[in-house]
Design a protein around this nucleic acid. Structure first.
Lengths: 167, 167
DNA sequence: CGTAAGTAGTTTCATTTGAAACTACATGGG
DNA sequence: CCCATGTAGTTTCAAATGAAACTACTTACG
């Protein structure tokens, strides 16, 4: 513990510029919280089901919505097409997902959960929900809803800003 | 179940198991929002100041709190020691940060912002705050505070769960 | 003291990531 | 019909990441 600097907040840069404090800075808080949660969840899925997070998302969305093309999956889960491609390959190799030809378009396939995939989905879902419940166990349901809403808006705001100043 | 079920949400796995919907699943929402924000911010810092996010965090915390060891920085910014080490190397090379020997411990150094580093800090801070303000421009200040609070608790909950079921 | 066990920081390595190039098919003019 | 341009998905490459091994120092204990 002898490495803490003497507690003045102005050692090198003078009194805090503006009023930035990393600790209360939203992008920082968001990233740190997301990393902590992702690490937890990733380990759970990996240990218990051998799934990566992209693979899990893919199974979840197929379980929810039925057959989809990779492109559609990418859109819905906000994953890069490369990520979707790799997740798919892994799942096809494990026979959890099957590719059917997409009759209207020869470049594309319809991905479907196999029997085993559907069973796995039924098995993972409750575990996923239980993790969420545990993470949120001390929070008020109304607060949870507004957080989720908030996160959605924030995502849109970030995308809007990225476009406006960006590509 | 009758076998003609074209658009229903249960094609392969039956009616939604439990009630999982990826779209409202907190770890998913969190990760997606965090990625969108991080991508935006990372590009801004990279384009305008040539800083990676770890480098920016390091400068921010040194600017706020004065000289610190790498270990202390890692703790405060929730970054891996490897990440801190590499961020430091880059900043030292650019002469934004200096290493002073830590007289109580020969393994360790005190990192300090150089003059140029302090100037950069003064320059980046307002930009950082402006991004935050733009992201949050449509939100109620009270909601923002409770979101930040929420994220902090969530992080703790995730860490607690990771410990309890983990190493 | 002197040695075993621990810690700060670096390096190495395997894995993950996404941008860009590429392949294969699709579509809309001419 | 045929070509130009566009899109679905894959591959390739370079960068980022973090676990584990390593180096250099410190500390606790006999």
């Amino acid at each position: 513990m002898p490495d803490a600097a003497p507690p003045g907040p102005e050692t090198a840069a003078g009194p805090a510029a503006g009023q930035l404090r990393l600790d209360g800075y939203l992008p920082y808080r968001l990233s740190v919280a997301s990393n902590a949660v992702s690490r937890l969840i990733a380990r759970a899925y990996e240990d218990r089901f051998g799934l990566t997070i992209p693979q899990w998302r893919l199974i979840a969305v197929l379980g929810e919505s039925g057959p989809l093309t990779q492109r559609a999956i990418g859109t819905r889960t906000v994953m890069d097409k490369v990520t979707v491609s790799r997740a798919t390959q892994g799942l096809v190799k494990r026979r959890l997902v099957q590719r059917a030809p997409h009759d209207a378009d020869g470049r594309s396939h319809r991905l479907v959960l196999s029997q085993a995939g559907a069973r796995l989905y039924q098995e993972v879902s409750p575990v996923a929900l239980e993790y969420e419940a545990r993470l949120l166990q001390h929070f008020d349901p109304a607060a949870i809803d507004s957080l989720k809403q908030f996160l959605r808006h924030l995502e849109q705001a970030a995308e809007a800003l990225a476009e406006s100043s960006g590509p």
